[in-house]
Amino acid sequence: MRTRSPRNLPDDELIRVARDGDNPAFTELVRRYEDTVYRFSYKICRDPAKAAETLQDTFVNVFRKLRTFDGKSKFSTWLYTIVTNNCLMKRRKRKGELLEESLEAYDHPQHQQTIGHRSQPLSMHETPADLVIGKELREVLDRAITRLPEDYRVVFVMRDIEGQSNGETARALGLSVEATKSRLRRARAFLREQLDPYVHTPARIA
C-alpha cells in the first residue's frame, strides 16, 4: 500500500500522524501553520523580532507537547494557548502601557458621557468594510493597542480579530467565560475611547 504524502493529508489526519512521531508530517504541520502563528504573535507582541522569536518557541513547544494534544479542542485553539503563553512570558512593561487596574474604570459609564457631546469629530465617510487605514490612523491604532496590558490585548485579538468564541478564548487563556467577557468589554471601551475622534459617527435614526 502506498503511503499518502503529508501534503495531501487533511488537517486532522496530519495532526494524528505527526502526534504519532512522523517527522515529515510534523514538518508539513509547521508549514501549514507558520504564517497563522507568526501573524497572531505579531498582533499580540506588536514587534516583528518578538513575533519571530515567539514563532520559533511555539513550534519547539508544539514538537515537545504534541502527544498531549487530545483533539478535544480545535488544534488552532491549542496553538493559540501556546503562542499566548510564549508572548506573555516575554512581556516586559512597555513605556506607556496601562496598569491592569486602571482598566477597571472602563466598567463605569462616565467614559460614555463624552459621546455625543464632542465638538467636531473627524468624519469617517467610509463604511467599515471600505476602510483604508492611512499612516496617521495606523499609528493611532498601534499606539492605542500597545497601551493595553497584554492580558487584555490577547482577549481583544482572539475575540474580535481572530473571531474565536468567548468559550474558546476562555479555554485558551485559562479564564472563566465571565472574566473573558469582562476583559473584552474593558479592552473595547478603552480602544474606542482612544479612537474617539475617528470612530464617532452621528447616530442614525432608524
Binding site: 507558520e34 504564517d35 507568526y38 501573524r39 505579531y42 498582533k43 516583528p48 519571530a52 514563532l55 459621546i115 469617517m124 467599515p128 468594510a129 476602510l131 483604508v132 487605514i133 490612523l137 495606523r138 491604532l141 498601534d142 493597542i145 481583544f156 474580535d160 480579530i161 473595547r188 471601551a189 480602544l191 474606542r192 479612537l195 474617539d196 475617528y198 470612530v199 464617532h200 459617527t201 447616530a203 442614525r204
Partner: peptide
C-alpha cells in the same frame, strides 16, 4: 456604532506576512 467601527478598524489593519 463607535464600538463596531473600532473593531472594524483593527480588523482592517494590515498585518505583515511571515518574513
Amino acid at each position: 456604532s463607535s464600538l463596531k467601527t473600532t473593531i472594524a478598524l483593527y480588523c482592517a489593519v494590515p498585518v505583515p506576512r511571515l518574513p
